[in-house]
Design a protein around this nucleic acid. Structure first.
Lengths: 333, 333
DNA sequence: CTGTTAGCGCATTCAC
DNA sequence: GTGAATGCGCTAACAG
């Protein structure tokens, strides 16, 4: 691989001049610039960005940590982020934390030691204290889907309480009174928030929250199926089921069908996230929209603005969920 | 950030010794190792892997280029790859090529200049010549889902012809004779291969291929919908529809329903890929399984073996598709 | 077993 | 406008 030194020799100029044309420095004559350029193409020269990073202390790369690389939720988020950066000549180093404290911390360590200029973190298991301490370090970062009051200005979040509220309110408005709820793992803040939105709506309609109709899942499809089975086999009746995300809702639907329950006639269901396949399940699933791609974009903009001093559209930190009505819910007589 | 130099000073040893303990070199006394270790923790030392890369010419990172970061197809592939590498202490730099020649080439350039030790490429638009030329370079790479005879031993592929054959054969066995086909973009090899598998099966059953019942889509959901509409409005009748991937099949199903067609009674449909949501559409979609996660794992193993000299399970380059039967197909009377 | 000495490829002061 | 010198943080021969 040709180095800057060979280019300079071929072009008959110094190292510094080659470096200047690479970085679009103004103080170069058009004629020498041309000389250098042709030498570069002749040698098939490619700048070594590792060396550039070491010398300039700027890697032009940002680290992205998500829980999973697969799944319908993270894809659009990563896509939005990569797109924004690609347009700006920045690149993305990716890591998966798998909702595990240790693996999340390891991944963060790696991204930092890899000289990422900034980080976009979607972390779940790491503690607030860890992140607050991290914020004292020299690598700037944004948090996606997590709120820490001390770091409020770098938290890009959805109003999950409101989302949970919207879902339950709609179900109540359809006349349902016996409502089951499959939550996410309650150690996760978003699972808690969605549940408290649920409770808030119940209260508003003067319905007591029934602990017997709550099942704590883990946001994965199987737990939705298990949750439904357990609720179904309990003595408590219900005509509507609220799931804290779409994947559990999907699992619950499959399980309900296996139990011989007709959807949506005998059971109304609503999910959360508006993952792309919700339009395709049967019956098409009502849900709460989570604008994760927009939020990914916003996170990228945050980095552009706070790390690379690019002016971007105004930064927004709190996003609003929206009710998406499809055919999985019917009016209760 | 503390450097190796400060650590050496605090521990009262030389640079080289610190480097040795970092790299688990055997030639260090336990006692000096301890001294160095405690100095490292005291300073909160983190090795700068950029500098490590530059000095050692090995970045312990591999580049992964896919077409899209979102979508049901690439997620499992990326997950499988990241998992395998994480266990081995390697890390993944990701890029999206968006099926565009220029962007794919740019992404490859970047990954190389970023000193990736090896590359896993899922490219579609770049030419064979480009890749052959690339193979002469110093960065090793594997190709996912692409076959180039000159690079056969580094191509990890699915037997698409056989997959296309399996789908059509099954439809024919169910008694259908009028069969429409929505292909992928025919400049893509996999789209071609699936179509020729289709033709092969037709031939075997002595059915002529009817050009009028072919629609060329682009592997995206919308083109499936458009394709169905166009086929439906043409004078040619058909009782079965074969789609070259699941997303187009999903689009076609939605469109068919809008046209008042009952599924599967009036139209049998089969897709390709066995993307995870096919189980959840209605009716559950028959399809051809594409073991993309396994293939991603294999690609990672290829890199481990060919780049890092790790011994791995035997490498397999050609994977077999399998027929997955669900409820979207009925026997034709 | 440990220390010394050179670089890795480039950016960035300074001079000129 | 251009060139020479220095260092980014680390690894890898060499000596000792």
């Amino acid at each position: 691989m040709a180095t800057i030194y060979e280019v300079s020799k071929l072009a008959g100029v110094s190292l510094a001049t080659v470096s200047r044309v690479m970085n679009n420095n103004v103080n170069v004559t058009d004629i020498t610039r041309k000389k250098v350029m042709s030498a570069m193409t002749e040698l098939g020269y490619r700048p070594n960005s590792i060396a550039q990073s070491l010398a300039s202390n700027c890697s032009n790369s940002v680290g992205l940590l998500v829980s999973e690389l697969s799944g319908p939720f993270y894809g659009p988020m990563m896509g939005g982020i990569e797109n924004t950066f690609r347009d700006q000549g920045k690149h993305v180093i990716i890591a998966a934390g798998h909702s595990d404290k240790k693996r999340e911390e390891q991944a963060i360590e790696f991204l930092i030691s890899r000289n990422c200029d900034g980080l976009i973190l979607h972390v779940e298991a790491v503690t607030d204290e860890y992140l607050i301490k991290l914020s004292k370090g020299k690598t700037p970062f944004v948090l996606l889907n997590r709120y820490i009051s001390e770091l409020a200005e770098r938290c890009i979040i959805l109003d999950n309480v409101h989302g949970g509220y919207l879902a339950t309110k709609y179900i109540l408005e359809q006349g349902h009174t016996d409502i089951a709820y499959i939550s996410g793992p309650l150690w996760k803040k978003d699972a808690q928030d969605r549940l408290s939105g649920h409770k808030k709506a119940l209260q508003e309609f003067n319905h007591a929250f029934d602990e017997q109709l709550l099942y704590e899942g883990d946001f994965m499809e199987n737990s939705g199926a298990q949750g439904y089975t357990q609720l179904h086999n309990s003595p408590h009746q219900f005509t509507a089921l609220i799931c804290a995300n779409d994947e559990m809702a999907t699992g619950a639907m499959a399980s309900a069908r296996e139990c011989g329950v007709t959807l949506p006639n005998e059971l109304s269901i609503i999910g959360f996230d508006n993952v792309f396949f919700t339009r395709h399940v049967y019956p098409p699933l009502s849900t709460i929209n989570y604008p994760i791609d927009e939020m990914g974009n916003m996170a990228a903009n945050w980095i552009l603005s706070n790390v690379y001093q690019k002016t971007t559209a105004e930064l927004q930190t709190v996003f609003k969920p929206e009710l998406i009505i499809r055919q999985s819910i019917i009016k209760h007589q």
